[in-house]
């Protein structure tokens, strides 16, 4: 692609990624979550792939990130076993990190309140972003 597309895509890269990150982090408050945020980030990476014909991105990098996201997701769930059961929300109602107790009724939504749910959203977001870009890359390579 010519230079104009390359520069525009570089400029547009950061707002897209920031917006995707916003969707992931506020998963337990606003609509959307890990999956939707990951798709947004994947679209940013797709923009790069099309603009620069993947001179810079290698695909085995994505499968690595994908496995990291997956193992992070499962290991959070396994940590729950020591507390009580699998997938146990050990962070909620502990007033420590992400554990602010919320009382029943309308509130403006606190960021550090979901317990392990935001962590799960983060893991799913990373995994989906790398998986979709891996798919886009393999389609392009065919």
């Amino acid at each position: 692609m010519n230079r104009v597309v390359k520069i525009i895509s570089l400029i547009m890269l950061s707002p897209i990624i920031i917006f995707g990150g916003y969707i992931i982090c506020h998963g337990h408050l606003t609509p959307g979550g890990g999956f939707q945020g990951g798709v947004v980030i994947a679209s940013a990476i797709a923009l790069l792939i099309i603009a620069f014909e993947d001179k810079i991105i290698k695909n085995h990098l994505f499968s690595l990130i994908e496995t990291i996201g997956l193992t992070f997701f499962i290991s959070i769930a396994f940590v729950g076993i020591f507390k009580n059961t699998f997938f146990y929300n050990f962070l909620s109602n502990t007033n420590y990190i992400l554990g602010k107790t919320i009382y029943f009724g309308a509130n403006s939504g606190y960021l550090n309140s979901g317990g392990i749910i935001p962590l799960m959203n983060l893991a799913v977001g990373v995994e989906v972003a790398s998986a979709l870009s891996f798919i886009i890359l393999s389609i392009k390579n065919k």
Binding site: S63, L64, E66, T67, I68, L70, T71, I74, S75, A77, F78, I81, T85, F86
Partner: peptide, 23 residues
Amino acid sequence: RNFIILVITIPLLTAFLLPLLKI
């Protein structure tokens, strides 16, 4: 009590860990 969930999730964990181990 947790044996039930371990039987299902340990293969899941190893399935996800495999690409890392392959390196």
